[in-house]
Design a protein around this nucleic acid. Sequence first.
DNA 1: AATTATAATGATAATGATTATTAAATGATA
DNA 2: TATCATTTAATAATCATTATCATTATAATT
Lengths: 160, 160
Amino acid sequence: MENRLEKIKKQLHSSSYKLTPQREATVRVLLEHEEDHLSAEDVYLLVKEKAPEIGLATVYRTLELLTELKVVDKINFGDGVSRYDLRKEGATHFHHHLVCIECGSVEEIQEDLLEDVEKIVEERWHFIIKDHRLTFHGVCRNCQKKQNKLVKSEQSSVEK
Amino acid sequence: MENRLEKIKKQLHSSSYKLTPQREATVRVLLEHEEDHLSAEDVYLLVKEKAPEIGLATVYRTLELLTELKVVDKINFGDGVSRYDLRKEGATHFHHHLVCIECGSVEEIQEDLLEDVEKIVEERWHFIIKDHRLTFHGVCRNCQKKQNKLVKSEQSSVEK
DNA sequence: AATTATAATGATAATGATTATTAAATGATA
DNA sequence: TATCATTTAATAATCATTATCATTATAATT
């Protein structure tokens, strides 16, 4: 944790930015919520718990800065808010997402899975890939279970 | 063209919606700009050329309706606007995009390419995939050429 | 054809996320 | 310490999108 913070600090310095207290607080929140997909507002509220004096605009600026430095990735699931995800250590590529259309939950896939596809795209479309975004929309495991139960109870009520 | 309009009309009817003149004008614009990735505003301006009385809200409503019916796909390239793409005839899946980080151009990939990946995801993550979004960010063919030229001219100016 | 119910529209206000502005605070540097 | 650049907080401004609501078009029914 501290380790990763240090690395981010160095990244900032190497682009002549400082790790101010506000920026540090923001990064800490991101580190503590790696699995979540926080919006700027979410981050703001969480940072405020520890550093109540911080302003919303600062959070936006910090997230923008971190995006620029590729410390975080900015994603959009189509719900009108941008969300910010820390890049995993050493990850060269953005991870993928499974968004459930029933309950809205978001799961992450760290595996690349796209190596072959990217090779094809680069060759056939003569496009040099620097990054990608892959999101699957569908039904998560939990909601599948729920639906099964529902179907069964409907059947039994028809049987009456 | 008329053919596809007819099909869309039927799709609307089968969900008990009508193809009003405003909706028809909007669909026509989408059909005439299949390769582009129009924002709601873009569509609005283009529709206005033919049907000047149309309101912006109607365009938004129509695009929302068409999205619901899966006639169009709503996409977001992270520039703060939603864009709307007609689904190709018979396409069950959304097509992919190549977004150039230099010039902003957007190219389309109609091929699926994800069959294998989806199989893996469904099996390993127990997730039922209904749709996906795949965007590659990188450098398009044109911009690669430009960069090559730039590098060469820089070399020659160094040589002086 | 007239009447009523419903759906759709246009104009515009409201909302909500994000960005810009500006004055004050901080920090580094000479 | 004085000076200069960077960063910040507060808040105003912007911009895309959605909600509201009065009006109009369409369809169904008499």
